[in-house]
Design a protein around this nucleic acid. Structure first.
Lengths: 192, 192
DNA sequence: AAATTCGATTGATCTATATCAAGTTTATTC
DNA sequence: GAATAAACTTGATATAGATCAATCGAATTT
């Protein structure tokens, strides 16, 4: 149950046996069925969540009712509305399951205790957030620099696994494109 | 020289006198004149930089020669090409001074030593990166959800200081707009 | 202070992508 | 396995914002 997360942590920091045992006690295993919600926009996001198995999406809905996907979270990654989680404000995003998923959740209070009792977890999350920041920055630049085709090509090259797993209309939303545009663009790529 | 950065650190973590003295020794004060470069795209970004005074911009240039601004860094904030800094790969961004600036720089080796010798710095950077991540995420969603006018309104409300300080064409680049579009849009806002 | 560079404005035109609509295929659900 | 709902495709049309070009004003440099 906990070996995936521990393996993941140990890729970035070294942990003693005692630390590992302690860490386990902070995380609660849960299951999400496909289409089930982990967080609903407008409510407080109570958990920081590690996905052990499955796939979640984090998204928000604009005034016109369009869904904008912020992040896909497959196994081995973390998800949350970080602002809501850390500040206690209401969540800007909804998070729900694209596939049946196994997750491990931690509350803010426990997160605070965890980092105080196992300080190396601050280092772990420092490195984790640092890497996420690099990725987010790249995506933002890409959204300004690249046209629709370049955005698709980029993700197809860098996340071939993801594009196989995710319905095309959700991928379009993630890339900031309409489903029609993505469909046409893929057709053109095949014809070339 | 170091009081600004220490004050900044102490907003997020508590530091002993000894820790503060130790921290100081890791940072090298430097000055940048307006238009001077801290990092040049294609070279390795050797420093993580805290800005004590002034204003820097981080940007990259696309194939067509257009500049895309990734970040403005006024006093009290950090800048770097994080990927280049931490991985040693060549930099994707250039960073240069919009105003004459006072900065404090640290190398990766020193950064590693700093976090090992003063572990609470991992916590500091965890919190810093965590907050940056929230901001970047919002910007990315905004770039998909909002039109030109909404993007401008948003930054005008949240960073009124910045829009006073930054030339309009650079602001346009930061928002992913052409300078002409931003100019027209501001005119319309005034007429309303 | 003159010269030069840089930034902002305005107009005309173009284009990538969105939107609307209908039809088809593929998955779910009962 | 029939019914229903999602997901994808294709066409026609609309539009936000880019691009090109010219002018004007402001600020920096010599």
């Amino acid at each position: 149950m906990y070996n995936i997360i521990l393996k993941h942590l140990e890729e970035k920091v070294t942990l003693s046996l005692e630390e590992k045992e302690l860490i386990k006690t902070f995380f609660k295993p849960q299951k999400l069925k496909k289409k089930q919600f982990l967080v609903i926009e407008g409510y407080v996001c109570k958990y920081l969540t590690f996905v052990s198995k499955g796939l979640l999406k984090s998204y928000n809905v604009d005034e016109k009712g369009n869904e904008h996907i912020n992040q896909f979270t497959p196994e081995g990654w973390w998800t949350s509305d970080m602002n809501s989680f850390f500040s206690g404000e209401i969540s800007f995003y909804s998070i729900n399951a694209i596939e049946d998923s196994d997750i491990l959740t931690i509350t803010v209070e426990d997160f605070d205790n965890l980092t105080l009792q196992v300080p190396v977890m601050d280092r772990y999350f420092r490195i984790l957030f640092q890497n996420s920041l690099i990725t987010k920055e790249r995506r933002l630049i890409s959204s300004h620099t690249h046209n629709a085709e370049e955005k698709y090509r980029h993700i197809a090259e860098n996340n071939p696994d993801l594009i196989k797993r995710v319905p095309q209309n959700l991928l379009a939303s993630y890339l900031g494109l309409s489903p029609e545009t993505l469909s046409r663009l893929k057709k053109n790529l095949l014809l070339e």
